[in-house]
Design a protein around this nucleic acid. Structure first.
Length: 492
RNA sequence: GGUCCUGUGGCCGAGUGGCUUAGGCAAUGGUCUGCAAAACCAUCUACAGCAGUUCGAAUCUGCUCGGGACCUCCA
């Protein structure tokens, strides 16, 4: 399927409209997603955003685009809170634990990669770090100063929001008015350096006790909170690129500031399509490191948590997320996860049966129309829940063919198999649940023997023995199913 | 306080002017089976409240009530 034949529509946060997607360079897409701050374990809410954009990346690839997917690692430069003005998050943690800052960064970066790999996320093409792009950030600040949109004060550099707003619209993304923002500003330390409370730091002067700092034209310091994404997206995707994504909570001020920085430095709008993934909630509230309302992936996979009480496979969690649209809030609960797990297994069962079903001369079902529905769903702003609904329609049809109630032609079977594999495995990024325990040769031999014995018992109508064997196997996580041709088994 | 989003059946979750029986899970009845399991068939519960616009609204508008996000690091 070629991207040209598809009218992919994207809900653009910048305009608030669902727009037909046109890339700047035909056939190529530049995609930037704000990555994690690697100073603590990535939690499940963080994962949702990255999984959402993984599907978006995968679908763009499926449509035939050549995508450059850039996702940063924030390993420096974020303020802790107003009480500890100017202190770098990573530096703070380092002092507490008596580790080198880069030791912390390394540890949580590895953890981040491991978790996303468990969710079967594809790696981005470039994963730049903030500390690796200090020079680019300094250069960008110099451009902004030169263009008159920033000023220096005591070794720090601030973005002049009001100046910028004279010729541009600060607040266009988050739909805020500059007057309202001024009214709602809190008093922060270091504000006396700023011309306006709305101004944000591009470069912060580092105090002597500060660990992570770099030389700059304004003295020793560290880059501001929003600058790294602007510098790195510009470097790898250009001054204007196609899609910028991130979590909804980054819309303001982070992304608003990125637009301002990019425009101030380069004179052009940095991004055509802004996309925002919504929050994953727990107990109805946003998951958040600072409030402690979180669930770690490891706790979920191991079952070692109070929220759910049992373990879930990462792919089941991924499927659960696919059943909601990326732009909607999704609440996490054991009940919802259980129902997803059952549905997921049913879908996977249909995937396996599809390979084996018999074909007929004609199909009794509009297979081509069904496949078109897969595309229509994804073309409509990556509507994965609708896609999943159609995949279940396909599963129902596959089961019906298997029972002889419906028919499928050879060529339709080929098309459906191809499409199902593409959408289930390549686009949604699902995988068949692992069955490695069942692929053991000696176990196969033993099971063959056991089932033969059970079959004899059944032929003798010795139901007690037959059922006892089945129950015992069940306890050992081996499920036996009887059908017309005998019994099948699988490891749970 | 300001800005914005949201309220769908037992649960999750799409849809957005007229027929979507959305879909998944659960429940009930049935087919199949020695019994199960699986699968299939059928049934069931709905659009927060009030008012308005309209031939027609769950879908648009207003108000009320509830929930959430952002305004401070946050996916």
């Amino acid at each position: 399927m070629n991207y040209k034949e598809n009218k992919l529509k994207i809900n653009n946060s910048l305009t608030g409209e669902k727009e037909v997607f046109n890339s700047i360079l035909d056939g190529f897409v530049g995609l930037y997603v704000c990555g994690p701050t690697v100073y603590s374990d990535v939690h499940l809410g963080n994962c949702r955003t990255f999984i959402s954009f993984d599907v978006i990346y995968r679908y763009l690839l499926h449509l035939g685009y050549k995508v450059r997917y850039v996702r940063n690692i924030t390993d420096a430069g974020h303020l802790e809170n107003d009480a500890e003005e100017g202190e770098d998050k990573i530096a703070k943690k380092a002092r507490l634990e008596q580790l080198e800052p880069m030791e912390i960064v390394q540890r949580y970066t590895l953890d981040f990669h491991k978790v996303l790999d468990q969710f079967n996320n594809l790696p981005p093409n470039i994963e730049p770090t903030a500390t690796g792009h200090i020079i680019e950030q300094i250069e960008m600040i110099m451009d902004i100063i030169e263009n008159g949109f920033a000023y220096e004060a005591n070794g720090s550099v601030y973005f002049d929001v009001e100046k910028y707003n004279e010729s541009n619209n600060y607040g266009e993304l988050s739909k805020r008015k500059i007057e309202d923002l001024v009214a709602g500003t809190r008093t922060l330390d270091g504000q006396e350096e700023k011309r306006s409370p709305l101004d944000f730091a591009l470069w912060k002067n580092a105090k002597p006790e500060h660990i992570m700092k770099w030389p700059s034209p304004w003295g020793l310091g560290f880059p501001g909170w929003h600058l790294e994404c602007s510098a790195m997206s510009t470097k790898y995707l250009g001054e204007s690129f196609d899609i910028h994504g991130g979590g909804m909570d980054l819309k303001f001020p982070h992304h608003e500031c990125e637009i301002a920085q990019g425009t101030a430095a380069n004179g052009s709008k940095p991004v055509n399509y802004w996309m925002h993934a919504n929050m994953l909630t727990l107990n109805g509230k946003k998951m958040s490191k600072s409030t402690g309302n979180t669930l770690l992936p490891e706790e979920l996979f191991s079952g070692d948590n109070e929220v759910l009480g049992r373990a879930y496979h990462p792919i089941v969690v991924r499927f659960f997320m696919m059943q909601a649209h990326y732009a909607s809030v999704l609440d996490f609960s054991a009940e919802a996860l259980n129902s997803s797990e059952k549905g997921f297994l049913r879908l996977m069962e249909a995937m396996k049966i599809l390979e084996e079903i018999k074909t007929s001369k004609k199909s009794s079902f509009d297979v081509e129309g069904l496949i078109m529905k897969f595309y229509n769903a994804m073309n409509d702003d990556f509507n994965t829940p609708i896609l999943v609904a159609h995949l279940f329609d396909a599963a129902k049809y596959i089961q019906a063919v298997n029972l002889g109630k419906e028919t499928i032609s050879e060529s339709d079977k080929k098309d459906l198999t191809f499409a199902m594999n593409e959408f289930v495995f390549d686009v949604l990024g699902l995988t068949l649940p692992s069955e490695e325990k069942g692929n053991n040769e000696s176990l196969e031999t033993v099971m063959e023997l056991v089932l033969q014995m059970r079959q004899k018992a059944r032929e003798n109508k010795d139901w007690t023995t037959a059922d006892a064997i089945r129950d015992k196997l069940n306890e050992a996580k081996i499920v036996v199913k009887d059908d017309k041709d005998g019994a099948t088994w699988k490891v749970q």
